[in-house]
Design a protein around this nucleic acid. Structure first.
Lengths: 204, 204
DNA sequence: GACAAACTTGACGGGTGCGTCATCTTGGCC
DNA sequence: GGCCAAGATGACGCACCCGTCAAGTTTGTC
């Protein structure tokens, strides 16, 4: 995505591998111990590298955590947002975003574990690249859809919060089902919000 | 609630005060640094006590954290559950529980901060006294209400998850409003779920 | 006021993590 | 094969935290 596509020289190859090993170990450790309790040594222990090597790749645990989030959470956000913005109808808006999101979750449950375990830390210390921003984006899209007449009037801040909270908790249940029930969860969330929006629009 | 009501002897008084000071400092520290990153020393520093004194009251940070949760989260859970079980109608069921919950949040926002910051830790390491259990209880109550005919048929696991996720995230927005908008949040959540349940019941 | 029990204090030993750096190893190149 | 630069290694110094405990202080009692 960023490196020159040719030149898989031997040196470059180990470098990529080491970086990947650190990231993989870090994902495991952060999901397991939580960001706060984890240390650089815990991460290094999950690789075949020496402790000093870590610092050739990242300055500290915060940087690894950031890299982990940025490389993957951004993708989920972009995906759901694209689904929402491509939507022509209210049903598309809701169903498309949930389908994209739940599909992503099912495809990368480890990432979800990481985020779930560290949601509190992420929203207080790493607000930018993640969930807080997701909600802000959703809220923005909701307002735009209301202005365009796609969606009935409502409290966009609460609605965005409810949609994200639901996505999160229903997502937890979904990945636990075997097989991961993407269609069922999407259907459930979509009907819930379409029904809810309808009722909120008609009364008060 | 547990100590003999009489006998506020001088000794007993300091004891209570010390315990309270530790708990207060701990709430602050855990909400701030997160459970994992916090240490016993961080807590002690927030009091006027010496480090050794801490261990006269709690064996380690885990015990303080447990005490903190048990003394307050249990209350919120009991409150919402009582509201649900007293409900005679569907509307009561949803509105009563949300009103109880949002009211509690507004009354003790610091507790909410603590839980929010450490939700991941709580659900993985302290599942028993807290949110995981809350969801299980709600699911149980939903099934009972469906059996009793108060609520239309639906996927109770997803519904419980959605209701809790919504409570959580809408709660965050609610406490940020000034004044804390208990009635508005309750109205919103109630209408959302009544509408959603209706639609989920009628289709598929 | 004197005494014992209850409690507090903070220094201590043991342990661990952090980030660095001198040294060794490996890959690229002629 | 020989040389140099890039990179890996892990021991080191420093800092900090944990849980304990001997010594000091406060409280209750006679």
């Amino acid at each position: 995505m960023s490196a020159p596509p040719a030149a898989p020289s031997r040196r470059e190859a180990t470098k990529q591998a080491n970086r990947a090993a650190i990231l993989a170990a870090a994902r495991e450790v952060f999901a397991d111990l939580g960001y706060g309790a984890a240390g650089v040594r815990d991460i290094v222990r999950g690789t075949a590298l020496a402790s000093g090597t870590f610092y050739n790749y990242f300055p500290d645990k915060e940087a690894v955590f950031r890299a982990l989030l940025e490389e993957s959470v951004a993708e989920a956000r972009a995906l759901t947002r694209a689904a929402r913005q491509a939507a022509g109808s209210l049903e598309d808006f809701v169903a498309g975003a949930y389908r994209a999101y739940f599909g992503f979750l099912a495809a990368d449950p480890q990432l979800f574990d990481l985020v779930r375990r560290n949601a509190g830390t992420i929203s207080t210390q790493f607000a930018e690249p993640s969930f807080g921003l997701s909600i802000a984006e959703l809220e923005e899209d909701l307002r735009a859809a209301v202005a365009a007449g796609t969606i009935p009037e409502h409290d966009a801040a609460y609605m965005a919060a409810a949609m994200v909270g639901t996505a999160f908790e229903v997502g937890v249940r979904m990945v636990q089902r075997d097989p991961p029930d993407v269609a069922g969860a999407t259907h459930f969330a979509t009907e819930l919000f379409l029904g809810g929006m309808g009722r909120l629009a008609s009364r008060s």
